[in-house]
């Protein structure tokens, strides 16, 4: 014991060095993010490889449970899908308008008769007067694009006069500089993917790819994207430009539409009783 003590005190510098240096290294590793990540990273690599090896075996053993859970999930999803398809969706969706508190209400409707090949196409939806639909309401597409106006209403159904009808005019503007025009279809163009914007004054500079949106008058909420300009040089011979527009929505695959219920439609109409609203 005494010898050990002598030994320790003779080489005390070295033992103190070991003690203090160990403390220093521990401090370094424990408190410095970088050193810690290196230390535990290299050790983790060994552990991680071992686990990876083990996992291959484990995966095979678990295949039955995985299969079962996937099948159960599939069944649940399929049930949900059937429920959605079977539903006669009468949910009323609301659009917030900041200036007029909740001016527009959307009524979802299912299209069950539609045509795109005629010169004056018509559409029938499964909502009618019972659901609050009246004549001249605007109809829009679920994601992007306009559809048309409600033409006639029965108790349970309504017919929609879509854009693909020569009698339909929809008031639109160019998104970038608010130039007014009206969206029409027909007149040598019977492609359901395209429409014309007429009556845009010649001095506006329009480029291919410019977006056309609804102007906000005539029943449509403002800002619904209608289509993109695909041709600016359609010659018509008058002092206005005519733009060819590629529509965002596809009329041939339309299954659901939203009927836009405008709270102030009656009020606006009563202000201009004499003027026949063309747009």
């Amino acid at each position: 014991m005494r010898n050990l003590w002598i030994f320790l005190s003779r080489y005390n510098a070295f033992f103190f060095f070991i003690i203090f240096f160990t403390v220093g290294i521990i401090l370094t590793i424990r408190n410095n993010m970088y050193q810690r990540s290196v230390t535990f990273g290299s050790t983790n690599e060994l552990v991680g490889t071992a686990y990876k090896r083990l996992n291959v075996i484990k995966r095979y053993l678990n295949l039955v449970q995985v299969n079962d859970s996937l099948a159960a999930e599939n069944a649940a999803l399929k049930t949900q899908l059937l429920a959605i398809n079977g539903i006669d969706s009468t949910q009323v969706t609301k659009v917030k308008d900041t200036t007029n508190h909740q001016q527009y209400t959307l009524i979802a409707a299912k299209v069950f008769k539609n045509s795109v090949t005629l010169t004056n196409n018509m559409m029938t939806i499964n909502k009618g007067g019972k659901d609050g639909i009246v004549k001249d309401m605007a109809v829009i597409s679920p994601i992007k694009g306009v559809v048309g106006f409600v033409e006639s209403v029965s108790e349970n159904f309504a017919t929609v006069r879509p854009l693909l009808n020569q009698k339909t005019f929809i008031s639109v503007v160019l998104k970038k500089d608010n130039a007014f025009g009206s969206l029409v279809w027909g007149d040598d163009n019977f492609d359901y993917r395209k429409a014309y914007v007429k009556e845009i004054p010649n001095h506006y500079k329009v480029k291919i790819g410019d977006t056309i949106i609804t102007s906000g008058s005539g029943g449509f909420p403002r800002g619904i994207e209608v289509g993109r300009v695909s041709n600016t040089s359609v010659s018509t011979g008058d002092s206005f430009m005519t733009l060819e527009v590629t529509l965002f929505n596809n009329f041939s695959t339309l299954h659901f539409v939203y009927v836009v219920k405008d709270k102030f439609a009656e009020e606006v109409k009563s202000l201009q009783p004499e003027v026949k609203n063309e747009q």
């Binding site: 203090f20 220093g24 521990i26 410095n32």
Partner: peptide, 28 residues
């Protein structure tokens, strides 16, 4: 003393333990 000096340095350098260990080695 070396330990405290290194610790002070580490506090300011944000490298806790690095200067401390170096100072201990220096003392040895």
């Amino acid at each position: 003393i070396a330990f405290i000096t290194g610790l002070t340095l580490d506090t300011f350098y944000d490298t806790l333990g690095v200067h401390t260990s170096a100072c201990i080695a220096l003392a040895f």
